[in-house]
Simulated assay, not measured.
Amino acid sequence: MYYVDNQPLPPSKVEWFRRIWAGSRERRVSIPNIITLGRILLVPVIVWAIASNEMAVAFAVFVIAGVSDAIDGFLAKRFNMSSELGALLDPLADKALLVSIYVSLGIWGAIPRWLVILVVSRDIMIVGAVIISWLFGKPVPMKPLMVSKLNTVAQVGFAALVLGALGFGFEPAPYDLVLMILVTLLTLLSVSFYLVEWTRHMSTIEPGH
């Protein structure tokens, strides 16, 4: 029972307070979301490090970002802290970090620019497809395909290898070539699968909508 000035509140007021309390709990930013936001804030740091030729620092920040990604994922699943905000922020943070690293390394000349264009174009096409589906009132379910997960792993591995080689002065060959081929193939496959699924999803729109 809720009281104000030692007087019991009527049932309608009690229900109103309960709704306010439930809404405030839903709006709280969870620990995994805070960690994800911190990972987003690391993006300008790693861009600065690459632009300043501080590759060891860039590699260290990249490792920290990777560890934070694993931690927020563990907390969200283990302690039931998953949320819609987290489902949107987590892939956004991953993509912002990877795209920033690839663009920075491409400008620096550490990786081929055609690969940068391929990686960035893939993300732009997917984001564009999602926006179009929203505009038509047919939002695409945000479920990453297995090939997309493999593509992310390959992109992370290639970026880490390049940053590590530049930061600590070791020869990455032939592993860099292998990973670059994997990134290229998986990027092409993932965007093809996404576009096929998106086309199939959008074909269900009734004429006139």
Rank of each mutant, 00 (worst) to 15 (best):
L179K: 04
R113Q: 14
A160T: 09
P141R: 10
F158T: 03
M180Q: 15
W108T: 09
V196A: 06
E171L: 04
L179D: 07
P139Q: 11
P172G: 13
L189A: 15
T152D: 00
Y102T: 03
A129N: 04
D176N: 15
L88H: 05
V99P: 04
D176P: 12
V120W: 09
M142E: 08
A96N: 00
K143Y: 11
V120T: 13
W134M: 12
L145W: 08
W198G: 08
I131P: 00
G157M: 08
L88Q: 10
D94S: 06
D90F: 05
I111M: 10
L161A: 07
R113M: 15
W114A: 14
A110N: 03
L185H: 04
I124A: 14
W198S: 15
G109D: 13
I126C: 03
L88E: 04
V127I: 12
V153Y: 06
P91Q: 11
W134S: 01
V162R: 07
L89V: 02
I117R: 06
L115K: 09
A110Q: 07
L163K: 11
P144L: 12
I181H: 09
Y175A: 13
L163Q: 03
L92K: 04
I111Y: 09
V140D: 03
I131N: 00
G167V: 00
P139F: 09
L177W: 07
L92G: 14
S100L: 10
D94A: 04
R122K: 13
M146H: 12
L189S: 12
Y102Q: 02
K95V: 07
V162H: 05
W134T: 00
S121L: 14
K95M: 02
V178R: 05
V183N: 12
S100P: 10
K149S: 02
F136T: 09
G137R: 08
I107K: 10
K138N: 13
P144G: 11
S104M: 12
W198L: 00
V120P: 07
R122I: 02
L135E: 01
